[in-house]
């Protein structure tokens, strides 16, 4: 590969990989919101629906 192409590829892909990992890391390490949240299969809340 020529150096211009290599630099462009490494820069572009490096930025995308770094930000993807950073945001995913934030998702994994951010403490869950206090209940009620949406991610618990334990939510037993029910809503009324009109027949």
């Amino acid at each position: 590969m020529n150096s211009a192409a290599l630099v462009t590829m490494v820069l572009a892909q490096g930025i995308v990989i770094a930000l993807t990992l950073y945001f995913f890391y934030k998702v994994l390490t951010t403490p869950p919101t206090q209940e009620p949240d949406s991610f618990s299969e334990n939510d037993e809340e029910t809503i009324r629906k009109n027949d």
């Binding site: 998702v27 991610f39 618990s40 299969e41 939510d43 809340e45 029910t46 809503i47 629906k49 009109n50």
Partner: peptide, 16 residues
Amino acid sequence: MTAKVESWGSRVGLIL
């Protein structure tokens, strides 16, 4: 009629 509110099982599951 009552229905259980559907929800995502996990945050990672939602993002995926």
